[in-house]
Simulated assay, not measured.
Amino acid sequence: MANSVYSINKGINRPLEFKGLKAQYIWYMAVGVFGVLILFVILYSCRINTYVCLVIGLSAGASWAMWIYKLSHKYGEYGLTKKLARRSVPKSIRAARNRDLFVGNLNGVYGKSDERNVADNGGRA
C-alpha cells in the first residue's frame, strides 16, 4: 500500500482570499455579477440590440469589478466595515433639557419626577 501525501493547510486564521479579493468583497463581486446578468436579461427582453446589451453589460461588469478590487486593496479585510461603523457613531451626545428621566430612575420609577411620585402615591414619598 502506497503512502499518501497530504498538504498541510498553513492558512489558519487568515482571511478567505480569491484572486486578490478578501473576505466580504467576494460576496460583493458575486452580487455585482448577478446584477449585471439581470441587467443584461432585462435589456435583452426589451428587444435592445444584442451588441448594445453586451457593451453595456461588459462595461458595467468591468467598472463594478474595478471598484470592488479598489475597495479590497484600499480597506483590506475589515476596513470598509469599520469605516461604515464609524459613520454611525454620533459626533456628540446631547442631554435632555430636564432631569426628570434620571431623577425618576433614581427613585425606582421610570420617567416620573419626585413631585409626580408624591401625587401618584397619595402624599407618600
Rank of each mutant, 00 (worst) to 15 (best):
R116M: 02
G57Y: 11
Y69V: 08
K10A: 13
Y110S: 08
S7D: 10
N121K: 10
Y6A: 00
V118I: 14
E115I: 14
L80C: 00
Y51C: 08
R94M: 02
Y44D: 14
V41Y: 08
G11I: 04
D120G: 02
G61Q: 05
L21S: 08
Y69F: 12
G20Y: 11
I56M: 11
Y78D: 10
Q24L: 07
R99H: 10
S7N: 09
R94E: 07
I12F: 12
I8G: 06
V55C: 14
L58A: 08
L84C: 05
G61K: 03
S7Y: 12
N49D: 15
S59F: 15
G20R: 04
R87P: 01
N9R: 04
F18V: 10
E115W: 03
G123V: 03
G35K: 07
I48K: 05
E17I: 10
I93L: 08
G122W: 00
N98E: 12
G108Q: 12
F34R: 04
M1T: 13
V109W: 09
S45I: 15
A60F: 14
G79K: 00
K74G: 02
G57D: 08
I38L: 15
Y69R: 06
L21G: 08
R124K: 07
R47D: 15
V55E: 14
K91V: 14
S63P: 12
G57C: 13
G111Y: 05
L16W: 07
R94A: 03
V31S: 07
Y78N: 09
E77Y: 01
E77D: 09
K10G: 15
S113W: 01
V109L: 02
G32M: 03
L58D: 02
F40P: 01
K83D: 01
A125D: 10
E77L: 05
D120V: 08
H73D: 13
W64Q: 07
Y51P: 09
S113R: 03
L54V: 05
A60P: 05
G104D: 06
I26F: 04
S63E: 09
T50I: 15
W64T: 04
K112F: 06
V118R: 00
R47S: 15
A125F: 14
R14Y: 12
A23N: 06
K112S: 01
L54I: 07
N3C: 04
F34P: 10
A119L: 01
V5T: 10
Y51Q: 11
Y28K: 02
S88L: 06
P90R: 05
N121F: 14
E17L: 10
K10H: 14
K22F: 13
T50P: 15
I48L: 14
Y110N: 06
M66K: 07
I93K: 02
A85M: 11
N3R: 05
L37E: 14
I93M: 04
S72R: 00
Y44T: 12
L106W: 11
W64Y: 10
S92I: 06
I38F: 15
T81H: 06
